[in-house]
Design a protein around this nucleic acid. Structure first.
Lengths: 155, 155
DNA sequence: ATTACTGCAAATAATTTGCATCTGG
DNA sequence: CCAGATGCAAATTATTTGCAGTAAT
């Protein structure tokens, strides 16, 4: 199933319309592998859709999130990040406090923790969108790596 | 050791001055058990120090954090929270996405995870300031609890 | 007497919203 | 056709900063 087909199907299923803005923004997120800020998505998408507005990008990304096509990632200090939702690969995130890079990690690492906080504190952990911060290998070793885009943290 | 003595000692040790603002803000954070926003600290502290300014609260809380007297907690969507640093009780945090309440949990729950991400991804986890989000028991059961202050999440 | 700290106002940064207009279904 | 989507500008929220006056050491 192509990106466009999936877009149309999922959006319509939720009662949303399929507009050129939504198509381009989704493709932009899908093509730019990794986790992008709204500003980054905006700049890239605008190249293909010159009239595009930043507010539309925010609204669209939220819509695509609700439709299950995009994941939001709020990292705390840094601006919100967006990525293509891939149901076949659920994961948590490590965010480097130095370079801002994001690294996906196996969600299974949180299984025991999830059960413990549920039984001990009655707290239902959101297993999507888990974010932990720290220092990636490159930054710890001194060479302050680039931001995710080119050379950031990865697996 | 009283709060005031500790303040004076730790601040001077780092080359900071002891001012009435800093004393009142630290006492406010210490007395208001739990995790407070800068705005909350400001409103309470201002009752004892009428001329106090919000910018001073932000600057002071950052100073107290650097001096090791206060902990910062960035929760992502909500504003930053501040709490008294208690070295005898290191802990991670559960933040309820519905009521905003914060619950402290045992840091030992993250020991295995810390080692795994270190060896598997070369990532050094920040074990201070860990924040996980989800739904607290009260909110899950429907009765959307109040914000931390009075009836929020606890243990 | 220094020099850090404070209050105030203005600046930022990220995100949201009101509203008139446009457009997909 | 018409509810929902977009563009634009203005608003909001949380936080930071420049600067001149004030106070801690």
């Amino acid at each position: 199933m192509s990106c466009g087909e999936r877009l149309a199907r999922e959006l319509r299923a939720e009662g949303y319309r399929v507009t050129p803005q939504r198509a381009v923004i989704l493709e932009t997120v899908a093509h730019a592998s990794g986790h992008r800020s709204a500003q980054e998505v905006f700049e890239r998408a605008r190249q293909r859709l010159p009239g595009l507005n930043l507010a539309t990008v925010y609204r669209t990304l939220e819509t695509l999130d609700r439709a299950g096509l995009v994941d939001l990632l709020s990292t705390g200090s840094q601006p919100m990040r967006f990525s293509l939702h891939d149901p076949s690969r659920p994961h948590a995130h490590l965010v480097c406090r130095s370079c801002g890079g994001v690294c996906d990690i196996d969600l299974d690492l949180f299984t025991a923790l999830t059960h413990t906080v549920a039984s001990r504190h009655g707290f239902t952990l959101d297993r999507d969108h888990i974010v932990l911060t720290g220092l990636c290998e490159a930054c710890r070793k001194g060479r302050g790596a680039a931001t995710e885009g080119e050379g950031g943290v990865r697996g």
